[in-house]
Design a protein around this nucleic acid. Structure first.
Lengths: 115, 115
DNA sequence: GTATTATGACGTAAACATACGACATAGTAC
DNA sequence: GTACTATGTCGTATGTTTACGTCATAATAC
């Protein structure tokens, strides 16, 4: 990606794209669902549930952590990852607004003016 | 990407990731917003509004079209792109369900059992 | 017919993402 | 102290995305 001109996109568009990118891999979707189901928060247990190596899972966890969607607390030898509920709810609102605005008017239906 | 083991993720997770990937670039978010605002549906006009070359915009349009999020109708020399409202509403529902499930319980708040 | 226009397809360079083995760190157990 | 365990970091191979110039196609204008 050559993001040289990206400054022209609005911060809103970039923020939505950033979060969408975090969800753009089934492993990361699965991780969030796993944490939500609270069967486990421990890093190693998450890796055990997924069809990926521990290294790769750790990488996906770091990516989610970089966006602050999840948080990790060190507890002795293990690390406990938890969802950042506040941010997730905020993000949900962003997506809802985006989709609601996009689907507000049936622009190109029968009788539309644009085409 | 070596998607060799991806079959183990559920179809639901893969579908969400697929759509998220489509939204994972500000240009594609901007395109959808532009089409929704219906100032134009014409391919060339879309390219003119974005800080990217016509070639690159066309590529982003193809990507959205591949997922059927937008549709293109040839009208003589121009092509008119329109949002697929039905699918967008379906996708919105998927995201809403995902986020609602994820934020249902404040698993790791004070008094949580997991950590 | 030729000239012009709008569009997509092709080729490609650079940046990025994915996956994983090997190593480093840091805590626990003894 | 040593042995073991849970994590993360590093390096790296492979695949994907992004961006764009150039070319091909197909419709219009004359």
């Amino acid at each position: 990606m050559t993001y040289a001109k990206t400054t022209v996109f609005t911060e809103e568009q970039q923020q939505l794209a950033r979060v969408a990118k975090a969800l753009a891999h089934p492993a990361r979707v699965a991780i969030i669902q796993l944490l939500a189901s609270k069967k486990t928060c421990i890093s190693g247990d998450i890796a055990a549930e997924l069809p990926l190596s521990r290294t790769t899972v750790s990488q996906h966890l770091q990516e989610l952590k970089a966006l602050d969607l999840i948080r990790g607390e060190i507890d002795g030898l293990t690390v406990c990852y938890c969802l950042n509920m506040g941010l997730l709810r905020q993000v949900q609102q962003q997506f809802t607004t985006f989709f609601t605005d996009a689907t507000a008017e049936d622009v190109c239906g029968p009788g539309a003016s644009c085409c």
